[in-house]
Design a protein around this nucleic acid. Structure first.
Lengths: 192, 192
DNA sequence: AATTCTAACTAACAAGCGTTAGTTTTGTGT
DNA sequence: ACACAAAACTAACGCTTGTTAGTTAGAATT
């Protein structure tokens, strides 16, 4: 078990509070109290509240971008790529669940270049997903109707996963992957 | 076209700002400025900021509860019930998209009895959905594996719909209903 | 014409915000 | 024992927050 630096400890505490109450409802004094120190002392380790947010969000966003770029390059079927994207989301959910909450709920409170960078990454990610779907349709692997609805449905499910994952108390990751792939690819109605 | 009371006008303005920035990032002065008056003047019409939030959220929450209770009572197949729930969500998304944003993002900033009431309604709603799925499984209309994943996937998609609905610029509602039902029930892979 | 109502205003309050400056304590290596 | 750095402290800053009190202008009602 690696020991966390004081700065990392602060980020962990902040991410927990951000997840529970949202960025704007958490004060520096709240974070300090949770760590057993005074608010001013936080500034020995971090440059400000904004750094906490951008550190959390951008770390996770880069993880998504990196993972998606890896999947796109693979030489496999579209179905397999979508499967890998689903698994990517689940892995990130398990490993970065606190940061994911900030990314989903508080990204609009990023400032300047951080905000621009995040929006760009998000758009690119979505566009890559869209291309994968399109290729799958052309190859006949995926239904040709309403591709935008599919894209939106899958992404919505994956993005909300972090809420459920902890409420249900740490499900088995590999089983969850299998189930999610099954439901998202084949729906809920049994084949005739 | 019915004319809005001053109070209703305030609620409309507030809901728009809440959706864009979140409850805590919007001040009473922001709302007042958007209406062309001073913050103190708002208090001639409303009791406080909290009233704006609870009015918005509870109105939508009651709409969900009412709609779900109606669907549950119907004497139709489970598949048909799920279809109706999907349509219910889409109707509410179209008619209450601003309040829906507050409900999704800022419900935790409700206070006391409003918060309790909301959580209760949400749990009941989810439980009703779970029961519908269960009945469908018992009747053989729905796949028997991973019912919790199905529930979570469908609900996630429906709850996030309001974000997409306006980004895509007012799609045709009936077409959207058809497409959503198709994707959520049958997935994205064509039948063999 | 006098009164009441509506909806705005100005001014101010106490509390909380993020952050800075300067100081003191604590722990570590020489 | 001494020096140095890390990490805490106290005190305060300027600003914003939600909200209240008291007042005023105009419209509607009597």
């Amino acid at each position: 078990m690696e020991t966390l630096s004081r700065k990392q400890e602060i980020i962990v505490v902040a991410s927990r509070l951000f997840k529970e109450r949202g960025y704007n409802a958490v004060s520096m004094r709240d974070i300090a109290q949770e760590m057993g120190i005074k608010a001013a002392s936080l500034y020995n380790h971090i440059s400000g509240k904004q750094e906490l947010l951008s550190t959390l969000i951008l770390e996770v966003a880069r993880e998504f971008t990196f993972g998606m770029n890896r999947v796109v390059k693979e030489e496999v079927s579209s179905i397999e790529k979508i499967t890998q994207v689903i698994e990517l989301h689940i892995d990130i959910t398990v490993n970065f669940s606190e940061g994911l909450a900030a990314l989903n709920n508080d990204w609009m409170h990023l400032e300047a270049t951080d905000l621009e960078g995040f929006v760009k990454m998000r758009e690119d990610y979505e566009e890559n997903f869209r291309i994968i779907l399109k290729q799958g349709i052309e190859a006949g692997e995926i239904q040709s109707h309403h591709p935008e609805v599919m894209l939106f449905s899958i992404l919505s499910t994956l993005r909300t996963l972090y809420v459920w994952y902890q409420k249900r108390g740490k499900l088995d990751v590999n089983l969850l992957k299998k189930d999610m792939v099954a439901v998202l690819l084949h729906g809920i109605v049994p084949p005739k």
